[in-house]
Simulated scan of single mutants.
Amino acid sequence: MASAMPVVVYLPAEDGGRRVRVDGEILGRAYGLRDVAEFLRRAGLDDVDEAYVAASGLIEWRGGGPQMWAH
Protein backbone atom coordinates (compact mmCIF):
# COMPACT_ATOMS: atom_id res chain seq x y z
CA MET A 1 0.00 0.00 0.00
CA ALA A 2 1.39 3.38 -0.92
CA SER A 3 1.33 5.89 1.91
CA ALA A 4 -0.76 8.28 -0.22
CA MET A 5 -3.75 5.89 -0.41
CA PRO A 6 -6.76 7.30 1.39
CA VAL A 7 -7.72 5.71 4.71
CA VAL A 8 -11.15 6.45 6.18
CA VAL A 9 -12.41 5.35 9.60
CA TYR A 10 -16.18 5.85 9.78
CA LEU A 11 -18.34 6.88 12.70
CA PRO A 12 -18.98 4.28 15.40
CA ALA A 13 -21.87 1.84 14.94
CA GLU A 14 -24.22 0.82 17.75
CA ASP A 15 -21.66 -1.74 19.00
CA GLY A 16 -18.79 0.81 18.93
CA GLY A 17 -17.13 -0.72 15.87
CA ARG A 18 -15.98 1.56 13.06
CA ARG A 19 -15.68 0.54 9.40
CA VAL A 20 -12.20 1.00 7.96
CA ARG A 21 -11.74 1.76 4.27
CA VAL A 22 -8.39 1.84 2.49
CA ASP A 23 -8.16 3.00 -1.10
CA GLY A 24 -11.91 2.53 -1.59
CA GLU A 25 -12.10 -0.99 -0.13
CA ILE A 26 -13.75 -1.76 3.23
CA LEU A 27 -11.26 -3.89 5.16
CA GLY A 28 -13.46 -4.58 8.16
CA ARG A 29 -14.71 -3.19 11.44
CA ALA A 30 -12.30 -1.89 14.06
CA TYR A 31 -13.03 -1.77 17.78
CA GLY A 32 -9.91 0.17 18.72
CA LEU A 33 -6.65 1.61 17.45
CA ARG A 34 -5.00 -1.81 17.50
CA ASP A 35 -7.55 -3.08 14.97
CA VAL A 36 -6.99 -0.11 12.66
CA ALA A 37 -3.24 -0.69 12.85
CA GLU A 38 -3.72 -4.36 11.95
CA PHE A 39 -5.87 -3.48 8.92
CA LEU A 40 -3.18 -1.07 7.72
CA ARG A 41 -0.45 -3.70 8.18
CA ARG A 42 -2.52 -6.21 6.19
CA ALA A 43 -2.92 -3.58 3.46
CA GLY A 44 0.87 -3.37 3.22
CA LEU A 45 1.85 -0.41 5.39
CA ASP A 46 4.87 -1.39 7.50
CA ASP A 47 5.74 -0.28 11.02
CA VAL A 48 2.20 0.69 11.99
CA ASP A 49 1.18 0.71 15.64
CA GLU A 50 -1.49 2.34 17.79
CA ALA A 51 0.54 5.55 18.26
CA TYR A 52 0.95 5.89 14.49
CA VAL A 53 -2.78 5.39 13.95
CA ALA A 54 -3.69 8.02 16.57
CA ALA A 55 -1.32 10.65 15.14
CA SER A 56 -1.34 9.93 11.39
CA GLY A 57 -2.50 12.58 8.97
CA LEU A 58 -3.06 9.74 6.49
CA ILE A 59 -6.29 8.74 8.24
CA GLU A 60 -9.58 10.61 7.84
CA TRP A 61 -11.66 10.12 10.98
CA ARG A 62 -15.39 10.57 10.38
CA GLY A 63 -17.74 11.01 13.32
CA GLY A 64 -15.00 11.55 15.90
CA GLY A 65 -11.27 11.12 16.12
CA PRO A 66 -9.15 8.20 17.23
CA GLN A 67 -10.45 8.43 20.80
CA MET A 68 -14.12 7.90 19.78
CA TRP A 69 -15.26 4.26 19.99
CA ALA A 70 -18.77 4.52 21.43
CA HIS A 71 -21.95 5.38 19.54
Rank of each mutant, 00 (worst) to 15 (best):
A30L: 04
D49L: 10
D46Y: 09
R42M: 11
A2F: 07
Y10T: 14
L11Y: 05
D46R: 15
R42Q: 15
Y10W: 11
R42V: 12
D46F: 08
A70F: 10
P66G: 09
I59R: 03
M5I: 13
H71S: 13
E38D: 15
E14G: 09
P66I: 02
L33W: 06
V53C: 00
E25W: 10
R29L: 11
H71W: 11
G63Q: 03
D46M: 11
A13H: 10
V8Y: 03
L45W: 08
L33T: 01
V36P: 04
G28Q: 05
D15S: 08
I59G: 02
V53I: 08
D23I: 07
W69R: 03
P66H: 02
A55D: 13
E14S: 14
A37Y: 01
A2Y: 04
G64I: 05
G28L: 03
H71E: 13
R21S: 12
G32P: 06
D15H: 05
M1C: 10
D15M: 07
G63M: 00
M1Q: 09
V9F: 04
L40Y: 01
P12V: 02
S3F: 10
W69D: 01
P6W: 00
E50S: 12
A51Q: 11
A13E: 08
A51M: 07
E50M: 09
A37E: 09
V8D: 03
D35F: 07
L33N: 07
L27G: 05
P12A: 03
H71D: 14
G17M: 06
V8C: 04
P6Q: 09
